[in-house]
Design a binder for these strands. Structure first.
Lengths: 244, 244
DNA sequence: TTTATAAGTGTTTTATTTACATTTTTAAAA
DNA sequence: TTTTAAAAATGTAAATAAAACACTTATAAA
C-alpha cells in the first residue's frame, strides 16, 4: 500500500503525486450549532433544498475545498449559510460509514459551534429554511446526523465542566440565573442555586457590574461579564483549571 | 456549493454522484501506538522506507480504501504493519493543514492504540523498521506527527482517569506496583502508594489472585486481574463511573 | 543468621461537595 | 399608600473525598 510511485503525475500540482494509486474521497464538514436564548439550549437545523433527502431536516454542512483546511471549511460553511462569523468552533469526530450518505461516498468531520441566539441576526443564504429547535424537541435528521448530535451533546457537557466555553452561548452581560439556566440545560439536571453561585464566585473570573437586568423580576438581577483576560492570566500563571 | 447536479455520473457506482463538482482528497489514518512494558510508557514508530521523507521516523499509517470505514482502516493498518489484531483503538482528531504532507494533499485521521508490549509478538511486514521508544525519548517525527502524539497523550491521560482503558496496556495478570507505574507514566507524575491502592480497591473491579509475581522482590507481589464482567455490570446497573 | 529490598497496610488532616431556608427588593395590584 | 407577589441574594453545618504520612512483613541471597 505504501510503495513508491514513480509514474508521471497526471495533475498540475507543484508536488509529485506520491500516492497516486490511492482512493480519493469527498470530505464534508457538518456543524452542530448550539444556541442559547437565556432559557433553553437550542440547535440550528436547516431543511435541505437539494438532493438527496431534499426537504428533510439536516445539520448545516458543506464540502472541504482544495485551498482550505477543515477548520476554515467549518468557518466558511457557517458563515455562508448563516452569515455568522467569529463563532466558537471545535472539531468533534469524523464519520465514515460506507453508506452514510446515499448520494456518494462521503466522509464527514463534525464540528460544534456555540452562539448566543439573541445577539446574532442571521443573513445567510439559508435563513428562510433554517430553524432553531429546542434541544429536546429536535426532529429526526438525515444520515448519521442524530448520532453526531448525541456525541456533540456529550462533548459540550464535558467541555462546559472543564473550560469556560459556556460564555460563548451567553450575551456579553448576563445574570447568574441565566448562567445557571445554561448549565442546567447543558448538563440536563437541576442545580442548587446557592451552591452554583458559590462555585462560580470561587472561580473568580466574573466581573459583577453595577447594572441590573429588570426584565425578569421586580427586584432586578445584577449583570456579570466574563473576565477573559483574568481567566487567561490565571491559566498561564498558576495553571488554573476552570472546573464546575 | 450545494446545488443539485443532474449531469450523467461518470463512475460505475450504484449511486448517482450528486456531489460531482466537489474536490476529492486522500484520507489517511495514522496510529499512535502506546505500549507499556511494566515499567514505562512506550510508543511504536517506524522508519519510513518510501518517499517522501524516506528514512525518517513516523507514525504507522495508511490510506482509507473505498470498501472500509475509518475504524476498519485503522485496524487494517495496524494489523498489516505489525501483525497485531484485536487491539484497543480510539479515534482522536483529524488533521488537515494544506501542506501537512508534502507528497500530496492528504487529510489524516489520528487514532490511538493501546497494547501490552510484552504479550505481543510482532510479525507484520514492518517489524524490522519498527521500534519501541520510551515516550520521553521519542525522536522528531515527520509531518504533523509530533502534534498528533501530544494530543494523543492528553487524550490518553483524560481517558485513563475516567475509563478503565489502562488495563489494555497491561498483561492479563499484573501487580499493583505495575498498575501504579502505568498510571504514573500516563499522568506523568508520582502517586502515593497507599492512596493509589486504596483508590483502586474502592473501585472494586479487580480480582486478587492467590498467585504472586516473584520476579521483582523477594517477598513477591500478589497478581490481580481486571474483572471486566463486574465492571460492565456495575456500569449498566448502577451507572458506575470508573474514576481515578 | 543476617541483611537488603520491595510489598503491604490505616489513620488523621484537609479540602471539597452537598444540603438546606430566610430576607430583600421592587413593580403591580388593591 | 399599603399590600402582595415573585425572583434575587445570601451562609453555615454536615458529609464525603482527597491528601499526607511511616512502620511492619516476607523472603531470597549473602
Amino acid at each position: 500500500m505504501f510503495e513508491e510511485n514513480l509514474e508521471a503525475p497526471e495533475n498540475l500540482n507543484m508536488h509529485l503525486n506520491y500516492y497516486q494509486k490511492e482512493d480519493q474521497v469527498l470530505l464534508a464538514v457538518d456543524c452542530i450549532i448550539f444556541g442559547f436564548d437565556k432559557e433553553n439550549l437550542k440547535i440550528l437545523l436547516i431543511k435541505r433544498n437539494f438532493e438527496p433527502e431534499k426537504g428533510k431536516w439536516s445539520l448545516i454542512g458543506g464540502f472541504l475545498k482544495k485551498n482550505e483546511n477543515l477548520d476554515e471549511a467549518a468557518v466558511r460553511v457557517l458563515e455562508t449559510l448563516t452569515g455568522l462569523n467569529d463563532i466558537y468552533l471545535e472539531q468533534i469526530h469524523t464519520y465514515s460509514k460506507i453508506d452514510r450518505d446515499p448520494g456518494q461516498r462521503t466522509i464527514s468531520v463534525a464540528y460544534f459551534a456555540l452562539i448566543d441566539v439573541d445577539s446574532h441576526r442571521f443573513d445567510g443564504i439559508q435563513i428562510d429554511s433554517a430553524h432553531w429547535f429546542d434541544i429536546k424537541e429536535a426532529p429526526n435528521l438525515i444520515f448519521d446526523h442524530n448520532e453526531m448530535i448525541q456525541k456533540a451533546k456529550a462533548r459540550l457537557k464535558r467541555r462546559a465542566l472543564s473550560k469556560p466555553i459556556g460564555f460563548e452561548l451567553l450575551p456579553e452581560k448576563f445574570t447568574m440565573r441565566q448562567l445557571q439556566n445554561l448549565y442546567e440545560s447543558i448538563l440536563d439536571k437541576k442545580l442548587d442555586k446557592r451552591n452554583f453561585i458559590n462555585k462560580i464566585n470561587s472561580l473568580d473570573v466574573l466581573i459583577k457590574l453595577d447594572e441590573k437586568d429588570m426584565s425578569v423580576s421586580r427586584k432586578g438581577a445584577y449583570l456579570y461579564v466574563f473576565d477573559k483576560d483574568k481567566y487567561e492570566k490565571k491559566v498561564e500563571e498558576d495553571g488554573f483549571i476552570f472546573k464546575i
